[in-house]
Design a protein around this nucleic acid. Structure first.
Ligand SMILES: Nc1ccn([C@H]2C[C@H](O)[C@@H](COP(=O)(O)OP(=O)(O)OP(=O)(O)O)O2)c(=O)n1
Ligand SMILES: [Mg+2]
Length: 625
DNA sequence: CTTGGAACGGTCC
DNA sequence: TGGACCGTT
């Protein structure tokens, strides 16, 4: 992947194209940034007296190496340097599914889609760490907390940090780099290979040569250098690399965790760069390297193109690399995609995504869920209630911790359910979600709300002799719409609107209605007594309004989680069973064939027709030429 | 027996 | 807005 053995001429030629394109992309990026009102970068191309140097936005992506494994290795360091994996549900299928694997394990041929038993087959001495279980489900707290440790270090170094996942964050380096620029240009500070540390330069063999080249140009003609956006941007990238290297070293010092980094001009490019030299390395992706790199980059491997959209591009245009996509003109793209999508793709094909780094280091939602496949599927009220209790037990602890640490409270509680007619003869599955206001972190209140919402939906789909007509194969709850501070009377009052009669008999599931006697500690009971909260559910508020439309959808729908795994498997080019080979696969196949949300906009013409065919000729909107 | 989990963020209507 | 759906780790 790294070394370019042949096609020198070809790459050289495209490199020039890339350079040219990149020069143009910067202006486009800036315009889009202004539209997006990214405060820290919106003026980056504007030279003013205070800010004499025009540089493009500089974005880094930090991604922890085999993160869950590192978390386990910090707890049991004797396994460092050995093949190791982290699995979920050891007692289940084939010793549990792998969710993280060390680089030593990767060298031995272990794959993420393997199970523990598979891993032992190809690598008998592999160390298997098992995700902790609590309340009958996997408990990822350990890894979330470790991720927060890392973010904390990042915030120490940079103001604008966007938590992208449990082990990834984007950083906007623009301001910090711009501040240092004069001191580096004046030689007060010097860019050295040592300062760059574990840096690689994409499409370049040596950091030294790259730096030498940079300084050669600076010495040659300093005025021309600072006037050249290409030179200045490369210089800025190098400064960014120093800052990111320092950050990564600090992360090691503070947390013992190693990570990789990507430094470039957009989230897309930084993410791509980060993956080029994993692990324990950071990669600078300069503008002039984008073209050559894109020539060998599969479309599927680019952020946001790893799913249906990417596959449709490949199928429709009969291409496979970003370099090829770059050569496709907007009018051609318009044959298959909407105007908006076509333009967006054309930008992305030169590395522009117009996404500012958001200053957000906390998750926006906190939730938990679990699959119940085959005989595990839930079909009684008692089962659903039991699992709601488990979920709430986990969630309330996490929410209270979040409230204490971050001074915020969730205002929305969402229940999501995937259900099928027969969990053993999966022919169609449907997923849905319902929400209720969150007015306290009281366990029983949350259980009541979550269960009532779920039960109403499932009951309305059919209920007889103590069993729902549908079996629940995935159940989850999530807290979101975070607001500053704790729960206040006015906040809770705002939920009391309208009136509606109770629709479901809860007397058997909640005997004695103990729930209505609960109170929130430390609050004005007359206002926020949970008995009042219960009224919400009996009135015509946001909950019941939607329960009335509980008729099953016609489209097939499978568990989101599983569906996503499928996406991941394809993205990583890992061989695995085709969907028709397994029962679950059939469900997932149905899932993917359903209607396409955002993608309807993205694939107006062809893809839609094909989707319609798969669905049995269902008619879809066709976008005018 | 059937098993590709469990979170997240975001867009669209 | 809520809810369905997509993309991602
Ligand atoms: N489908 C996935 C992908 C990832 N993870 C978890 C486990 C990983 O340790 C962590 C980070 O995901 P990465 O894709 O970044 O993978 P790693 O950090 O494990 O490896 P790498 O070194 O390739 O980044 O998120 C997960 O639970 N399910
Ligand atoms: Mg990682």
């Amino acid at each position: 992947m790294k070394s370019n053995t042949g096609h020198r001429n070809d790459q050289g030629r495209v490199a020039e194209e890339g350079e040219e394109v990149c020069g143009e992309q910067l202006g486009a990026m800036e315009n889009a940034r202004k539209r997006c009102q990214a405060p820290s970068t919106s003026k980056s191309l504007m030279a003013t007296e205070d800010d004499p140097y025009k540089i493009d936005p500089l974005i880094a992506l930090i991604d922890m190496d085999c993160f869950y494994v590192q978390v386990e290795l910090r707890l049991e360091p004797e396994w460092r340097g050995k093949p190791a994996i982290v699995v979920q549900y050891k007692t289940r299928h084939k010793g549990g599914g792998i969710i993280a694997l060390s680089y030593e394990a990767r060298e031995r041929g272990v794959k993420r889609f393997h199970h523990a038993d598979d891993a032992r087959e190809v690598c008998p001495e592999v160390k298997v760490f098992v995700v902790p279980e609590l309340h009958g489900k996997a408990d990822l707290t350990r890894y979330r907390d470790a991720g927060a440790e890392v973010i904390r270090v990042m915030k120490k170094h940079f103001h604008c940090v966007e938590r992208a996942s449990v082990d990834e964050a984007f950083v906007d380096l623009t301001k910090e780099v711009k501040q240092l620029l004069p001191r580096y240009l004046s030689k007060e500070l010097k860019l050295t290979p040592e300062a760059l540390g574990s840096t690689c330069i994409a499409e370049s063999h040596s950091v030294e040569a790259w730096l030498d080249q940079l300084y050669l140009k600076l010495e040659e003609d300093p005025e021309a250098f600072v006037a050249s956006s290409v030179q200045l941007n490369n210089f800025a990238l190098a400064i960014g690399a120093v800052l990111v290297n320092d950050l990564r070293q600090d992360i090691i010092n503070v947390t013992e965790f190693h990570c990789s980094g990507g430094i470039s001009y957009s989230k897309t490019l930084s993410k791509l760069a980060c993956g080029l030299n994993k692990p324990r390395k950071q990669t600078v992706l300069p503008g002039n390297a984008v073209g050559p790199l894109f020539n060998k980059t599969n479309i599927i491997d680019v952020r946001m193109l790893g799913g249906k959209l990417g596959r449709s591009i490949i199928e429709n245009l009969c291409i496979s690399t970003m370099g090829e996509l770059c050569k496709v003109e907007v009018p051609k793209l318009r044959q298959y995609f909407s105007e908006e999508t076509a333009r967006w793709l054309a930008s992305l094909a030169v590395g522009i995504d117009n996404e500012p780094v958001q200053e957000r280091d906390l998750p926006k939602s906190i939730g938990c869920s679990k699959n119940f496949l085959g005989k595990e599927a839930l079909s009684t009220r008692e089962q659903v209630k039991k699992w709601m209790e488990h979920f709430v037990s986990e969630l309330s602890v996490r929410l209270k911790k979040d409230q204490a640490e971050n001074n915020r409270s969730a205002s929305l509680l969402t229940v999501s359910i995937t259900y099928v007619k027969d969990p053993f003869k999966i022919k169609s599955g449907q997923s849905c979600s319902r929400c209720a206001p969150m007015t306290s972190y009281d366990n029983e209140a949350m259980v009541y709300d979550a269960f009532m919402v779920a039960d109403r939906l499932l009951t309305s789909l059919g209920y007889r002799n103590g069993r729902y007509h549908y079996a629940v194969i995935n159940l989850g709850i999530s807290a979101s719409k975070m607001r500053d501070g704790g729960f206040t009377a006015s906040r809770i009052d705002s939920y009391f609107r309208g009136q509606k009669k109770k629709e479901v008999d809860d007397s058997q599931i909640f005997p004695g209605n103990k729930y209505s006697e609960l109170k929130v500690k430390g609050r004005d009971a007359s206002k926020i007594q949970l008995g009042k909260a219960k009224e919400v559910r009996e009135r015509k508020g946001s909950i019941t309004k939607y329960l009335n439309q509980a008729s099953p959808r016609k489209d097939a729908q499978g568990g989101q989680a599983s569906h996503h795994q499928q996406q991941k498997v394809r993205t990583e080019h890992m061989e695995s069973k085709s969907d028709t080979e397994t029962r679950l696969g059939q469900l997932l196949q149905a899932t993917r064939s359903q209607r396409m949300g955002k993608v309807r906009r993205l694939f107006p013409a062809r893809f839609t027709d094909e989707g319609g065919t798969r669905l049995g000729g269902r008619q879809r909107r066709r976008v005018p030429q």
